[in-house]
């Protein structure tokens, strides 16, 4: 594996991690809003309990993505920076409002209602803007003269909306499956049923929008569709993972107290599904970072910097992994946090 490929794989990995974490984070905000007025089962409260300690960590992954791109592919910054000025700035503004509200509502109850709406609405808008980056990278939306984004074209092209539909349904699907699992971990059966139902409804939708997207990509970027079709077997594997995971939502439990479904198995398989599909998408996108001007190999950084960056990753991860483990134990595993007894006192 040469340096370019190694670097782009790392960037791909971070995109993938952020896509999953971001989906769950923004999706939880959306579900928190949808279920904010339900007393029974507290599905909304459950979503918000998950969000409180995690959004900061999720946000660091977004920054990690940006910094990794700059460090490994400095030559791409000019093109990408010019093209993303508008969507990037909008994401920043929305993200700032969302994060501030997230921290504020924790301190002042008066904002609770407002927060839930802000967090829900931005939970749809931010991912939409982020997803719109993908069609931009496939070419055709950047004005070759000025280097700036053709905003009008971007927002009138069916391709963009296909990506959006796919991105949003995936986000809601993934977050619903995750929250179903989180609810089960918290022994909260009513919420479990709510989120399982969402997942069951959204599953097929994600599949349909995925096919639709591949279909419309051909309009703007025939090169990409051509290459996507060559990755067919990865997509088949991905669909297989989805099907098994989807079935797992219907498997009966031996424990009669519990409603049907194995959310943990389902969620893990859905992650595998998305890993396979985005791996295939990434492979099809090679060798371009931004079609047609930037390829991986013509934008990768110098070897010396590359080496040191890799060293820093090694050391950084070694230090952080115990931290992540502790975090997981305290907020995703510990019953005292998941289902506090003295709730509402």
């Amino acid at each position: 594996m040469n340096e370019g490929l190694l670097a782009v794989s790392l960037v791909w990995l971070f995109v993938f991690i952020y896509a999953i974490l971001g989906s769950i984070d923004f999706g939880a905000g959306f579900w928190g809003m949808v279920h904010r007025n339900e007393v029974q089962g507290e599905a909304g409260a459950l979503a918000n309990r998950f969000l409180s300690p995690t959004w900061e960590v999720t946000n660091v992954f977004l920054v990690l993505l940006v910094v990794t791109l700059v460090s490994f592919f400095p030559a791409a910054i000019y093109t990408v920076g010019m093209a993303l000025l508008l969507p990037g700035s909008l994401v920043l503004i929305l993200l700032t409002i969302r994060s501030a509200m997230m921290a504020f509502q924790h301190s002042v109850r008066r904002f609770k209602g407002a927060l839930e709406v802000v967090s829900g609405v931005t939970g749809v808008l931010i991912p939409s803007l982020l997803v719109s980056v993908l069609p931009i990278l496939t070419g055709g939306f950047i004005d070759p003269e000025s280097g700036m984004l053709r905003v009008g074209k971007l927002f009138t092209s069916p391709v963009t909306y296909a990506y959006l539909a796919f991105g949003l349904s995936s986000q809601l699907f993934l977050s619903a499956s995750f929250l179903a699992d989180y609810a089960r971990e918290a022994d909260n059966e009513p919420s479990y049923r709510v989120f399982r139902r969402h997942a069951v409804r959204l599953g097929p939708l994600t599949l349909i929008t995925a096919v639709l997207t591949t279909w419309t990509i051909g309009q703007e970027a025939s090169w990409l569709r051509q290459q996507l079709l060559e990755e067919g077997r990865w997509f088949l594997l991905s669909i297989l993972a989805f099907l098994i995971g989807y079935l797992a939502l219907f498997w009966k439990r031996r424990d009669r107290q519990k409603y049907r479904g194995w959310p943990r198995v389902a969620f893990i398989l859905f992650i595998i599904q998305y890993a396979l599909a985005s791996f295939a998408y990434g492979r099809a996108h090679l060798p371009y970072l931004v079609y047609p001007s930037l390829t991986v190999d013509n934008s990768v950084t110098n070897p010396e910097m590359f080496r040191l960056l890799m060293v820093s990753y090694g050391i950084g991860l070694a230090i952080l992994i115990p931290g992540f483990y502790l975090f997981w134990r305290l907020f995703l595993k510990d019953k005292r946090y998941l289902a506090p007894k003295e709730e509402g006192e």
Binding site: P53, T54, E56, V57, N59, V60, V63, L64, V67, T68, V70, S71, P74, T301, M305, L308, L309, S312, Y313, I315, G316, I319, L320, G323, F324, L326, F327, F331
Partner: peptide, 19 residues
């Protein structure tokens, strides 16, 4: 790029333990 990259690990440390 190095300090920017290492800074991220510092952010993680801070965000994780602040939570």
């Amino acid at each position: 790029a190095l300090p920017f990259q290492i800074e991220l690990f510092a952010f993680f440390l801070e965000a994780l333990f602040m939570s």
